[in-house]
Design a protein around this nucleic acid. Structure first.
Length: 332
DNA sequence: TACTCGTGGAC
DNA sequence: TGTCCAAGAGT
């Protein structure tokens, strides 16, 4: 992993934020591009948010990027650009929670601080036979205290990483490879044959669905793009204008609704694609349209962009799918 | 506390 | 094809 070849706390911090809820193989190319684009803490502190989000595009959980930059700016202003080396101070930075604090402190500074993630809770739930529900926030404290009592003061970095690595490669969620496990003789669950029962984890609730019409409005060589709200889902990302509407809306209805909304003329609305996009807790069912618009009054959060400018705007999954449909038709 | 916040790989 | 889920944090 490329972030294990640096001792720079700033770069290790980046890697740990990217790794939140995200697989190692997914993070690697993003990490490489990111540290090349923003090699020092001050490069990121000075970066334009749109450039930053473009670098993060496709990685998901975009508030991580903004929080990381906010944290980096705090370090630049309040700590002279040096990432603080105490749990109290580093935990106060935006986007740095209990796990990330412990990971940076142990890996970058060699401090004996716990770094409890999903791997660690799974591994220790088996080794120590802990049957508390790991889906509940308060349960993490049990594991933090366990790690604090176990952690090597000789090499805290290797200890924390080793525990996570064990979880990722051997002590997996389903069918753990106990016969390959170097600590199976110390594992209470293995000794009792109960490794499949642990960890106890209540399952998440079902996701709900929302239906949208997404409309690529063209005027000459330009398309109308809209910047999303600075809060909530896909904050500050760009998209084609959308209407929340029951699936089944047709071109004529699109023309009527949008002509009214933009106090102009929308014509030739034609459905070009239809797809589903699944988020963590939400599903979008999208009908994608292309249309032509003239004499439109557009709000401040929208602008006309040509194909080259469109490439510079950070866009998320559903809009990528729409863009792919447009490209296959030669529209962009 | 419970819910919000993306994406893609594994089964 | 659906489900789970992965090195979590903010609100």
């Amino acid at each position: 992993m490329p972030w294990r070849r640096t001792a720079d706390p700033y770069q290790i911090w980046i890697s740990e934020v990217m790794l939140q809820q995200t697989r190692v193989d997914t993070v690697i190319p993003y990490y490489k591009r990111f540290v090349e684009k923003f090699p020092t803490l001050h490069d990121l502190a000075d970066a334009d948010e749109e450039i930053l989000l473009k670098q993060w595009e496709g990685l998901g959980y975009y508030s991580r990027a903004r929080n990381l930059q906010a944290g980096v700016r705090e370090v630049a202003e309040n700590y002279g650009g040096k990432v603080p080396a105490s749990r109290k101070e580093i935990s106060a930075l935006k986007g740095v929670g209990p796990y990330t604090a412990g990971a940076v402190l142990s890996i970058a500074y060699g401090l004996p601080e716990h770094a409890v993630d999903g791997n660690v809770m799974r591994v220790l739930s088996r080794i120590l036979l802990i049957d508390e529900d790991i889906a509940k926030p308060k349960t993490r404290k049990i594991f933090e205290e366990a790690v604090t009592g176990l952690i090597s003061h000789e090499d805290p970095s290797a200890f924390n990483q080793g525990l996570m690595e064990l979880g990722a490669l051997i002590c997996t969620p389903t069918s753990p490879k106990c016969l390959l496990c170097p600590v199976r003789e110390h594992c209470s669950a293995f000794l009792e044959g109960r490794q499949q029962e642990l960890p106890v984890k209540t399952k998440a609730k079902n996701t709900k669905a929302v239906n949208y019409a997404m409309v690529a409005i063209r005027n000459g060589e330009s398309f109308l793009m809209e910047k999303r709200s600075s809060k909530g889902l896909l904050a500050n990302m760009w998209q084609f204008p959308m209407l929340e509407f029951p699936v089944g809306i047709d071109g004529a209805e699109i023309e009527e609704l949008l002509s009214e909304q933009f106090k102009g003329t929308i014509v030739k609305a034609e459905k070009i694609t239809s797809f589903k996009h699944v988020f963590s807790h939400l599903t979008w069912n999208v009908d994608g349209f292309i249309a032509e618009g003239v004499n439109l009054e557009i709000p401040d959060n929208m602008k006309w962009v040509d194909s080259a400018e469109m490439e510079l705007l950070p866009i998320a999954g559903p809009v990528q799918k729409m863009k792919t449909a447009l490209k296959s038709r030669g529209d962009v």
